[in-house]
């Protein structure tokens, strides 16, 4: 049973307070990243943020290049909200929440050109490397967006290309020490509005009390590379200004966590 405490959360938010006495702009602690949690993936990581646990795994394959980008590889992000991770999720094809999560992380990485796709090309017009990042929830205790973004980047950082034999067949059992050509590392920060107040790193009960949210992908230089507004209440331009300031600051905090656990 998912517990709802909406009225209390809203009432506290008005006074700048939270149920667990955290600051409005304070992440749960500690945040930790475990690496190489799947030896079958080319790169993998598990992020623990409070009670939230998310896994990301990277698989690499050689595919035919696309007609409009003959000298580029590609990257796709997929997300699954496992019924294992919450009583709210059901078996079956990904629901809209999983689709949105995948799309937002995808936008942060792919559309921001975080990966040098040209370097993935094996033979122009014929073959290139394609990257798939799978994001899997293990325990959804809120703020999957930020945890998933962190896990995806950690997995990409640790990924190593597998060996390819002379016939061009991938030997997934053996890895080279070649890394994925990451050119920038946007991390998503989701800022929610709860009873008019801005808040980060929400628990599930807090998410249910929120009116709207904005996920902001920011790289190390504070350049914004992805945005996604959620919720049915509008945000003013002034509020968006505040949210961007928070997101830029918090993405540098999360980048500190990433750097602490994963070598660039």
């Amino acid at each position: 049973m998912i517990i709802i405490n909406t009225e209390t959360i809203k009432g506290l938010a008005k006074d700048g307070k939270r149920m667990d006495l955290r600051g409005m702009l304070e992440y749960r602690s500690p945040i930790s990243i475990d690496l190489d949690i799947s030896f079958t993936a080319e790169g993998s990581a598990k992020v623990t943020m409070g009670d939230t646990v998310v896994i990301a795994g990277v698989k690499l394959s050689i595919e035919k290049t696309y007609g409009d980008t003959p000298d580029e590889g590609g990257i796709t992000v997929n997300a699954e909200l496992l019924p294992l991770s919450s009583s709210e999720y059901e078996s079956g094809p990904p629901g809209i929440k999983a689709v949105e999560l995948a799309r937002v992380i995808d936008r942060g990485i792919r559309e921001s050109k975080a990966i040098d796709l040209k370097k993935l090309c094996v033979k122009p017009g014929e073959k290139a490397w394609f990257i798939t990042v799978d994001i899997i929830s293990i325990n959804d205790a809120g703020n999957l967006f930020d945890a998933a973004g962190l896990a995806a980047l950690a997995a990409l950082r640790t990924a190593r290309f597998p060996v390819v034999d002379e016939k061009g067949v991938i030997d997934y059992k053996h890895k080279t020490d070649v890394k994925i050509p990451i050119v920038k590392e946007p991390l998503p920060v989701t800022v929610y509005k709860v009873n008019g107040q801005l808040m980060v790193d929400l628990t599930v009960a807090e998410e249910k009390a929120a009116e709207s949210r904005l996920t902001v992908g920011c790289d190390a230089h504070g350049v914004i590379s992805a945005l996604q507004k959620g919720g049915t209440t509008p945000l003013s331009a002034v509020e968006i200004g505040h949210i961007l300031d928070i997101a830029i600051e918090k993405s540098s905090f999360l980048r500190g966590v990433l750097d602490k656990f994963v070598k660039a």
Binding site: T40, G57, K59, S61, E80, P93, D134, Y172, K173
Partner: peptide, 13 residues
Amino acid sequence: MPFSGAGERVRPG
């Protein structure tokens, strides 16, 4: 999980 197999990625579902 899609990345849990010995070889290529397995489609989820």
